[in-house]
Computed example of a mutant assay.
Amino acid sequence: MNSFPAWYFDESQMAGINFEDIAQVEAFDCKQTSSTPQKEQALVKRLGISLGHTVIDLGAGTGTFAIQAALEGAFVHAIDISQSMLAYAQQKARKMGASTIKFHRAGFLTYEHNDNLGDFVITKAALHILPDFWKMVALMRMASMLKPNGILYLRDAIFSFPISEHKTFIDEWIEHSSKPEGEGWTDKDYHMHVREEHSTFAWIIEGMLTRAGFEITQANYLTPTAAEYICIKIA
């Protein structure tokens, strides 16, 4: 195992949620309305993931995407910093018969890929745990895991609204997205996210992607507070 300098970012100190508490992991899985089996199956097909592909899923969480990719015949490396998340994902994978997933306890900054280079790297709703400096490090590491012309898919809370209007857009986001306790992400969850996590602006993440060696082929601003990117690793 690699050792890291004392100044290295500790991804295990995530804001807001104790992902080693299995009850919180189960609650997290229920709240993930953007990550249902049907939606993840549609994304797998949209990206063209199929038999024989190698997929690296960073921040795999409770494994819904990894399972759907495996059911299409891909070999999947599912990586997450939380052992409880991984255990929960493994249990789901066994129930679904998704046998071509290898689970790794690691993060964006610590995962060492020692297998075939990936055809796809996927990261959804996870990169925001890192400050921008460390996002750039993580994106460079992702590029190193991909084959030339391999695909990176990134989706996260990414801000495309005018900076001068940030208060209005953040308030509207929280007002329209938050749910009552027990039904999804609450206003307190969103407050914590904005206050303590590290979502960034689209123009910043797009500059990082380019500098990390990617060509952005699709940039979709899903809302003023969410975006997705499909990128090709430049050979």
Rank of each mutant, 00 (worst) to 15 (best):
M1T: 12
F4H: 12
F4G: 02
A6I: 14
W7E: 14
E11K: 02
Q13T: 10
Q13N: 14
A15E: 12
I17T: 15
N18I: 11
E20S: 08
E20G: 08
Q24L: 06
A27R: 07
P37E: 09
Q38A: 11
Q38P: 06
K39V: 08
Q41R: 07
A42I: 12
A42V: 05
V44Q: 03
L47N: 07
L47Q: 10
I49S: 07
S50R: 05
S50A: 15
L51S: 14
L51Y: 07
G52R: 08
T54S: 08
V55D: 08
D57L: 02
D57W: 01
L58P: 03
A60W: 08
G61H: 06
G63W: 00
T64S: 03
F65M: 04
A69P: 10
A70I: 07
G73E: 10
A78V: 08
I79G: 03
D80W: 00
S84E: 15
M85R: 01
M85K: 06
L86A: 07
Y88F: 15
Y88D: 04
A89T: 05
Q90N: 11
R94C: 08
G97Q: 06
G97R: 13
G97V: 07
A98T: 09
S99A: 13
T100V: 00
K102A: 15
K102H: 13
A106D: 08
A106F: 01
A106Q: 09
G107K: 05
Y111P: 03
Y111K: 01
Y111L: 12
E112S: 10
E112R: 10
H113A: 11
N116A: 12
N116E: 09
L117W: 02
D119Q: 03
F120C: 07
V121Q: 02
I122W: 05
K124M: 13
A126Q: 08
L127D: 02
L127K: 01
F133G: 01
W134L: 09
K135C: 00
V137G: 04
V137Y: 00
A138W: 07
M140A: 15
M140C: 13
A143P: 00
S144E: 11
K147V: 12
K147M: 13
P148D: 15
P148K: 03
N149G: 04
N149Q: 15
N149R: 11
G150Q: 13
G150F: 15
G150C: 11
L154G: 09
R155K: 15
R155W: 04
R155Y: 03
A157S: 14
I158Q: 01
S160M: 03
F161Y: 04
P162K: 01
P162E: 06
H166V: 06
F169Q: 10
F169V: 01
I170A: 04
I170N: 00
D171L: 11
E172F: 02
E172G: 05
I174E: 11
I174A: 05
E175F: 09
H176G: 10
S177T: 06
K179A: 04
K179Q: 13
E181V: 06
E183W: 01
E183Y: 03
G184M: 07
T186S: 08
Y190S: 05
M192W: 12
R195G: 11
H198I: 02
S199W: 02
F201T: 02
A202C: 10
I204A: 10
I204N: 14
I204D: 09
R211N: 10
R211W: 02
G213R: 13
G213N: 09
I216F: 03
A219F: 03
P224N: 05
A227Y: 00
I230Q: 08
I232Y: 02
I232M: 02
I232W: 05
I232A: 03
A235T: 13
A235D: 14
